[in-house]
Design a protein around this nucleic acid. Structure first.
Lengths: 96, 96
DNA sequence: CTATTTTAGCCAAAATTTGACAAGTCATAA
DNA sequence: TTATGACTTGTCAAATTTTGGCTAAAATAG
């Protein structure tokens, strides 16, 4: 599940139009369309606003949103999987 | 293990100076110093050159280099760990 | 068809990244 | 002490990337 897809699901389930959410985020409709299609990435602040506007779970949206960016960073890299595992280990180390 | 640290280890084990490797990469010594200390990030092309110059394993260097960037992306995010797991799953999906 | 919604393409402003330079610290040697 | 060499710090401008808005085209609904 990608972030844009999820936003679209939530938006449509609530019967909202792109231009309505776009207005709330103070961006224009084409920009919102691009976010939904994953052509542009939302800002963190916009994720927060969307969670609120769509009554969605913020941590979960953030998780998907971040995952998108990670994928974008490592795609086309042969070592992608291994790098992710390494990053996870590093992360756990820092938690202590 | 971070990328810069690893480069420094390899460089020192071969008795090379920063200015020598910097010259090979066609950047100046301060820039190389910053890469070693993780203040600046190396370009992918530079990772390849370094692997060659230091007779190091390229996939392994790339793994560490990528992991650094992932960490940099997700640090300060509460959902970092979960996002990484999600990204890993997405990645595996694409592999089929 | 006509309206509205959504998407595509382009351009400029803004933000980030990159690299170089000058000057600094630190250690060692003369 | 002075000098030298290796490395680091801080700042600046050039270059690249990202962001946002505009126009107009395509798709969809009525």
């Amino acid at each position: 599940m990608q972030f844009g897809e999820r936003i679209r699901e939530l938006r449509e389930s609530r019967g909202l139009l792109q231009r309505q959410l776009a207005a709330s985020l103070e961006i224009d409709t084409p920009m919102f369309s691009k976010i939904e299609r994953g052509e542009r990435k939302a800002k963190r602040e916009q994720v927060e606003q969307l969670a609120s506007l769509l009554h969605a779970n913020l941590p979960d949206l953030l998780r998907i949103w971040l995952a998108d960016q990670i994928i974008d960073l490592v795609k086309n890299e042969p070592q992608a999987g291994e790098a992710l595992k390494t990053a996870l280990k590093e992360l756990k180390k820092d938690e202590h």
